[in-house]
Design a protein around this nucleic acid. Structure first.
Lengths: 129, 129
DNA sequence: ACACTTAATGAAAATGATTATCAATAAGTA
DNA sequence: TACTTATTGATAATCATTTTCATTAAGTGT
């Protein structure tokens, strides 16, 4: 009985999917609470981390405020707004060309398991304000 | 009298330089305390953030544990060890070729001010353990 | 359907990193 | 030397995340 299928985990995974836009754990928590009013924030953290470990989600390296989670697991890069911290996908695949794990491994001696390319910028909304 | 030249700020900037390897605020604090035993951790944070604002240092987007600071301000990328969190430079410039701010801006609508390319891996020491 | 084992949960406390507060100190100026 | 106020040190506050632990309920066998 290694693992159990619980309502909480199903709703959390589903909300991460539906929210789409790189929510923080707290944003997921608030969304889940609409369906499961008594859910605990600890459960949200536990489940989000579990999904990442299972490879069914990723966490976005953003460096501004709370950690953000991503339901996408394919390779793509992000833009972070330096003012409000929101994160968006940058879908165009071109940016990850030229990133070679073997080259990087040779250059630093680490065993490379992945990489993240994140742009820093100001989002349209914050440009106005 | 916009700004003052204090011993604390000089020693903190100097230690960030000397430590070299992307120290956390706490690591800088411990180094500075050897010369200035009564320095406050708040002062270390304040000064480190000031240096970043002035463009005399940068903070590395690492996503594992505490924030890390970098005395280098030129464009270069990093490797983070997923086990111990240490950060190293990946000096070879090739990895940042193909990263085009204008392309990214067009793709997402943000005003792009910079980018970070960070590899995730396992450092030599952790590979053995 | 019923009982049993234990993974998963909820609530709250604990931890860790960073920031805010505020009285005391000291850098730069007159 | 006196004065103004930026900066400091100490501490409390904040925020995100993890741990703890008693309680609940999922999956299993009967």
């Amino acid at each position: 009985m290694a693992s159990r299928n619980t309502v909480q985990q199903r709703v959390i995974a589903q909300q991460l999917m539906e929210l789409g836009n790189h929510p923080t754990a707290d944003e997921v928590y608030r969304a889940v609470r609409r369906q499961l009013p008594s859910v605990s924030k600890a459960t949200v953290y536990r489940t989000l981390n579990k999904l990442v470990h299972l490879g069914e989600a990723t966490c976005v390296i953003a460096g501004l405020g709370a950690e953000r989670f991503d339901h996408r697991t394919d390779e793509h890069c992000h833009v972070v707004c330096m003012k409000c911290g929101t994160v968006q996908d940058v879908s165009e695949g071109v940016f990850n060309d030229g990133v070679d794990h073997a080259d990087a491994a040779a250059a630093c001696g680490y065993e490379i398991v992945g990489h993240d390319l994140v742009f820093e910028g100001i989002c349209p909304a914050c440009q106005r304000a």
